[in-house]
Design a protein around this nucleic acid. Structure first.
Lengths: 221, 221
DNA sequence: ATAAAAATGTCGCGATGGTGACAATCTCGC
DNA sequence: GCGAGATTGTCACCATCGCGACATTTTTAT
């Protein structure tokens, strides 16, 4: 693994806070997987297939609401570990994960994780801490969703979805609408408002953030 | 501890699935705490003060949304353990917990848990599994909230809030409105609709479920 | 008992989101 | 290049939610 990849992983607070020995133990069992665009990493209801980390590219997590509509599409950026929930409790995946565009991941399959954890049982505690971190994210998400205006939620969603360093988000409007939890037409109206204000630029299958500070201001209205 | 209390605890899937040795180790460090009505168990932002379980009575967990409105009021029933998130990761409480009515709890303070875990490190893994269970609950909550009609969400909230065996929920309408995420007046309108249909009976500070099957039918509309 | 406080019941209005419909535009495979 | 399919842009209409306002009822404190 190249140094650049190590740097990417170390930017993650959870991974950086791990004890060195267990970090190395985990990496020793990890294998690199190169995925084509849109490859299925795991599906909703699948039995757990281990722990993953994004090294390069983008992974999108999608759940299904009761009416079958997509929701809770989280965009996972490089440096982030995911899939720990089912890995720890052994229950079926609560959402599906697919690569968006070509991607390079680290994969620690279940038996590999078990091997590493047999040597260093504290790895289970580390995994629990990762679940905690994501639980707190979910709680913040709920707190920010309820009672917030659509305009604010849209701004937050755009900021979360934009890859650091690049002000461009490749996403269809109906997907974005599902994330914000509104109808596609309503989303389009709000996007057009933001475009008139010079904050974003709306194109086919892509949204460019022109005024990052302005968008952040909207997100805290 | 009486046998009835043990039975109450064993009704919880997480506790029942624990290894016997660790279950006993946990209980050995637990002390019983009797609380008056409305007692504060911990507050939002507090440093962790350990793990708790409801033995008798009711505990309510409340978060705050960005605009300061109450939200995510979860009602914790006897047999349920809570407070594991901060206990595991050591970070501040993400919500507040208060007793509703007099209550009897089990309390495992941080040092006590550390003592038990020093003897049986797998307790950390158990705690991680509890976080997993609650994480899955949160995910289900999100999936059931988004895109569901208010009528359905209200029915679900009422079913969750009603203590088993009793068809009565003691709650103010503005609190219930905060749980469902709507305005008090709108909640009242929907409650009155359910009352006209003979499903519930609305009284001052209390809602009685008259037709449980009917309410469950509404919850799955 | 009585007053104050808390909680509930209703109404009307303004704002806004959902939906269906349909045109316009863009992309991709052949 | 070209056509099918996917995606976006817009509109009108309807439903309904939030909010302010205010009366009514119930509880609690003195």
């Amino acid at each position: 693994m190249h140094q650049a990849d190590i740097d990417t992983l170390m930017a993650d607070p959870w991974f950086a806070a791990m004890a060195i020995g267990r970090r190395d133990g985990l990496l020793r069992e990890a294998r690199t997987e190169v995925l084509a665009a849109g490859a299925r990493i795991y599906g909703l209801g699948d039995p757990p297939n281990g722990l993953w980390a994004v090294v390069e590219g983008q992974v999108r997590l999608k759940g299904l609401s009761v009416n079958g509509a997509e929701l809770l599409a989280l965009i996972v950026r490089p440096g982030t570990w995911f899939g720990e929930l089912s890995t720890l409790d052994g229950l079926p995946r609560p959402h599906e994960a697919t690569s968006f565009g070509p991607a390079r991941l680290l994969h620690v399959p279940m038996p590999a994780f078990a091997r590493a954890a047999a040597l260093q049982p504290e790895l289970y505690r580390d995994l629990g801490l990762l679940v905690c971190a994501h639980q707190r994210t979910a709680l913040r998400f709920i707190a920010n969703s309820i009672g917030q205006s659509i305009r604010v939620r849209l701004a937050v969603a755009l900021l979360r979805a934009s890859v650091a360093g690049d002000g461009s988000v490749t996403i269809r409007q109906d997907e974005l609408a599902a994330i914000v939890g509104i109808a596609r037409q309503t989303l389009n109206r709000h996007l057009k408002t933001l475009e008139r204000e010079g904050i974003v630029e709306v194109a086919y299958g892509r949204i460019r953030i022109l005024d990052l500070a302005g968008l952040q201001a909207v997100a805290t209205e």
